[in-house]
Nucleic acid binder design. Structure first.
Lengths: 248, 248
DNA sequence: CCGCGATGTGAAAATCCTGTGAAGGGGTCG
DNA sequence: CGACCCCTTCACAGGATTTTCACATCGCGG
């Protein structure tokens, strides 16, 4: 994904140009955004109540109050993205609008698709800083609990003590439980590049992993070898064979 | 102040149009922004090392690689604000550029002041997003009380005496208690741009933080290192080790 | 049953990562 | 202008981790 996906946006379009609004609304519907169409600018307070993500507004409707209105609108605590879309203007006007807090200024006549793209870009940019921590679900298998948020695996609350590579290897295999992951894929996913001929890193790390997993969760086997192919994650309670009454 | 004050911005201008660049640079100096002027587009990796807040680029210099370049540039974890400033273009081209992650698209000929205002708006927009996601609620952990409203942490009512960066680092880590925050994420959240290879700022600040926290709240450990990954905030009352009977 | 290549194993060698102290630069304020 | 604060960068040390190597085992086909 090149940029953030165009998630749903609550948008208001304040414009009396019915032709423009109609075409814009059509495109709006196509991308699934909910939009309020307002032929006349409401008080800023009313817009505030709508909890909008973005607003497209033709400042021509505001008359002499335009600058005050924009300033007020953009000065709110949780101000929406403001895109001014109006007729011909001077550089000074555009600069003033942007400096007052507007996020973009599009000059009519313009293509609705571009207006949308610009709203999208502005919303994306604002959201970019917000949610970045992904709520990562743990993967459980057998006695193992693999927690991506800790870069660590646990058995009954005790950490296994994995290094970064070890964890990533385990995580990759456990993400496809029961399926064989080819050696080459392991290599390119965990190491990030193609496997060089004769490289044994994967084998060595599988061994380290098995050792630590055996120590942390004895009696279980998690990693299975598929000769000539790769490895498979599949938690199995092993048969006890040395000591007699290990299990009950 | 109508909107956010135009704080210092590290900007790169990638354009071979010396006339345009010269005029732009003049205005740049007037507002006190540091700017790199690049007549030819460097690899995206080099731009990353510069740790820019924003970049103004004429895509005409990129030739057929333009879209790929833009996508790569905007696809980074902590991508800078990207403003494309180039000659005549079609609606489809502008939409494509914006969808790929560009923040604005200005058509030449244009006034440097407007370009600046647009960069400013985009930077402001991003910073707004970063702030809005930060709750004002204090975070408590161990003896520590972290108060975002004061940019300071307290132990028993006494201020720890954190600098801005120290506070933001602590705040970020403490916002995800018990979870490991990767170094890159720390960097892009606290510093606001991608981490350059070999940068040790995070380590240095962790050390400063630990020192101050230890002084303010002795006997407690708050910051834990996860080798090869990052750091984790998790208040723990430390074992006393000067006295002999630590273990039995 | 044999041979060959693939895999398991253990340890040494090479590399990478973090802690730490300090120097240097840029900015701010009096 | 000078003092001070803060941030960045550097160099080095000590570990932890990863890679490499040599050899033992194992699986599969002939």
């Amino acid at each position: 994904m090149p940029a953030t996906a165009p998630a749903a946006v609550r948008l208001a379009v304040v414009d009396s140009d019915s032709g423009f609004v109609r075409v814009l609304a059509k495109r709006l519907g196509a991308v699934g955004w909910r939009a309020q169409l307002l032929p006349t600018p409401p008080p800023v307070e009313e817009l505030q109540v709508m909890r909008l993500h973005a607003i497209v507004i033709d400042t021509a409707l505001l008359g002499s109050e335009a600058w005050t209105y924009i300033e007020h609108l953009c000065g709110q605590a949780a101000a929406p993205v403001v895109v001014i879309c109006t007729g011909p203007s001077s550089v000074a006007q555009r600069v003033r609008g942007l400096r007052l807090g507007a996020d973009d200024w599009v000059t009519k006549p313009c293509h609705p698709e571009e207006v949308l793209a610009r709203v999208e870009a502005a919303v994306r940019r604002r959201r970019a800083g917000e949610l970045s921590s992904q709520p990562i679900e743990p993967i459980v298998g057998g006695e193992l609990e693999i927690r991506p948020d800790m870069f660590e695996a646990f058995v009954g609350g005790r950490a296994v003590g994995l290094t970064r590579r070890e964890f990533e290897l385990l995580h990759l295999l456990a993400a496809a439980p029961g399926r064989v992951v080819p050696r080459e894929r392991v290599y390119e996913r965990v190491w990030g590049y193609a496997m060089a001929h004769g490289d044994r890193s994967v084998d060595v790390f599988v061994r380290k992993l098995r050792k630590k997993l055996e120590a942390a969760s004895p009696g279980w086997v998690y990693l299975h070898t598929h000769f000539g192919v790769g490895y498979r994650f599949d938690p199995q309670e092993a048969e006890e064979k040395e000591t007699e009454e290990v299990d009950r």
